[in-house]
């Protein structure tokens, strides 16, 4: 099974090497599958086909979106706390006109 994965990635890198020869590829070891893996390979699923298209740019998009959504959620949580504090200020100092 490991052999089939290795073969898969060798095929992929051969394809990449042909068009990277002109641009001058940066040599890297990122592209070796972690050797502890022993998992059967399958045909790419629909999700994979989308994510792998256009030289995997959608993986970067997904990563950036996760960060963006995370920041939004954190700000919303902070906002909710602020609303609660404002409410307790209004309860404790009912006559105060804070101009808000």
């Amino acid at each position: 099974m490991t052999k089939s994965i290795v073969a898969l990635f060798q095929n992929a890198s051969q394809v990449a090497v042909t068009d990277s020869a002109a641009t001058g590829t940066v040599s890297t070891a990122y592209d070796s599958l972690w050797t502890g893996a022993d998992i059967p390979t399958q045909a790419p699923s629909a999700l994979e086909q989308v994510m792998l298209s256009d030289e995997k740019i959608f993986v970067v998009l997904a990563v950036v979106l996760i960060i963006w959504i995370g920041v939004i959620l954190l700000i919303l949580r902070t906002d909710r706390h602020l609303t609660r504090v404002e409410r307790s200020v209004a309860e404790n100092i009912p006559d105060a006109d804070d101009g808000l």
């Binding site: 990449a16 641009t23 590829t25």
Partner: peptide, 26 residues
């Protein structure tokens, strides 16, 4: 950073391809 991360080009890397750009975010 976001603009530079997507617009600046670098030599293609095997397997990683554009996901190398995750270096700027992950």
């Amino acid at each position: 950073i976001l603009l530079a991360g997507f617009l600046l080009n670098f030599p293609k890397i095997n397997i990683l391809e554009h996901t190398a750009r995750n270096l700027y975010f992950h």
